[in-house]
Computed example of a mutant assay.
Amino acid sequence: MSENSKIFKDGLWEQNVVFAQMLALCPTMAVTTSGTNGLGMGLATTAVLVVSNMLVSLIRQTVSSQVRIPVFVVLIATLVTIVDLAMNAWVHELYKVLGLFIALIVVNCAILGRAEAFAVKNGILASAVDGIAMGLGFTGALTLIGLIREFLGAGTLFAQASQLLGPAFAFLEVQVPGYGGALLMILPPGAFAVLGFLLAGKRLLERRLAERAAARPSPATA
């Protein structure tokens, strides 16, 4: 497996921010009342993650270890401010829905964690790939949780996508006829329940795959 393929596998599955590392649970629980909200929050976080990884990799040789963390935090805060202003200007409706959680990307442990664990030790290209992979894994987790909660709680998929993300996303909107939904799934307990079932499903799938790999005869044995 090539290095970039391994980085993508880690970001999407092996070290998924939500399902493996259990980080960024505050936005995961709070904004995933719909798939649209989860997608918007995930893409905003991905933008910050990719650029911050690249910048950290770029300055890693010039910043001393004594002031590394404060410099990284200021760098991430600057990027979050830019994303916050950009969303306010171009996707204002989504900006109003996500509200304070956009600014709280600054304290997202996944972003500073990737800067410390990966970007500070690797080149710009690898750091960019890592940021994309981790961001897509995070976006996928938020979107999946949001879609499940939205479907079970309101009988819709990507509700108000055209209003929050723009007219080009209108094709994503789905309404399940004759189903009103269960309010519990939109409330905070629904978020914990969905996350718990998804975590259990991931662990079960990994165990089944490991058992199947162990049972498969090696080439030498064959």
Rank of each mutant, 00 (worst) to 15 (best):
187 L>D: 14
2 S>K: 04
151 F>L: 13
176 V>G: 03
3 E>N: 06
25 L>S: 01
128 A>W: 15
143 T>Q: 06
123 G>C: 10
6 K>C: 03
150 E>H: 12
108 N>Y: 03
54 M>K: 07
89 A>W: 07
12 L>Y: 12
107 V>R: 02
123 G>E: 09
95 Y>E: 09
2 S>F: 08
66 Q>I: 05
212 R>P: 03
210 A>E: 11
118 F>N: 02
70 P>H: 12
181 G>S: 11
208 R>S: 07
176 V>E: 10
50 V>F: 01
211 E>L: 14
180 G>P: 14
44 A>C: 10
19 F>H: 10
114 R>W: 03
90 W>I: 14
121 K>N: 12
211 E>K: 07
47 A>I: 15
155 G>M: 04
31 V>K: 00
147 L>A: 13
173 E>V: 03
144 L>G: 08
100 L>N: 08
90 W>F: 15
178 G>L: 05
70 P>A: 09
124 I>Q: 12
24 A>N: 05
135 G>W: 00
121 K>E: 02
108 N>A: 04
220 A>M: 06
157 L>F: 07
195 L>C: 10
91 V>C: 14
66 Q>M: 14
112 L>W: 01
154 A>R: 08
74 V>G: 13
48 V>I: 14
214 A>D: 12
130 D>S: 15
1 M>D: 07
179 Y>L: 09
138 F>P: 00
200 A>Y: 09
2 S>L: 03
61 Q>P: 07
9 K>R: 13
215 A>G: 13
86 A>S: 13
118 F>V: 05
163 Q>I: 03
108 N>M: 01
189 P>I: 10
201 G>M: 00
56 V>H: 02
94 L>T: 09
180 G>M: 05
42 G>C: 12
178 G>T: 08
88 N>P: 03
95 Y>P: 00
138 F>H: 04
208 R>D: 08
117 A>Y: 13
48 V>C: 02
23 L>R: 07
15 Q>S: 13
31 V>R: 00
174 V>A: 07
52 S>R: 06
205 L>W: 10
183 L>I: 15
35 G>L: 01
212 R>N: 10
77 A>E: 03
210 A>K: 15
63 V>T: 04
182 A>M: 15
203 R>H: 15
107 V>T: 14
26 C>T: 15
54 M>L: 14
66 Q>W: 05
41 M>K: 04
83 V>E: 15
219 P>V: 09
66 Q>H: 11
69 I>L: 15
156 T>K: 14
67 V>E: 03
79 L>G: 03
12 L>W: 03
84 D>K: 12
5 S>E: 10
133 A>M: 08
20 A>C: 12
94 L>N: 04
57 S>H: 01
45 T>V: 10
52 S>E: 06
39 L>T: 09
98 L>V: 08
218 S>C: 04
149 R>D: 02
81 T>A: 15
12 L>V: 11
86 A>H: 07
92 H>R: 15
222 A>P: 09
202 K>C: 06
177 P>Y: 09
121 K>V: 02
137 G>W: 00
41 M>I: 02
115 A>G: 07
73 V>C: 11
202 K>M: 07
199 L>D: 07
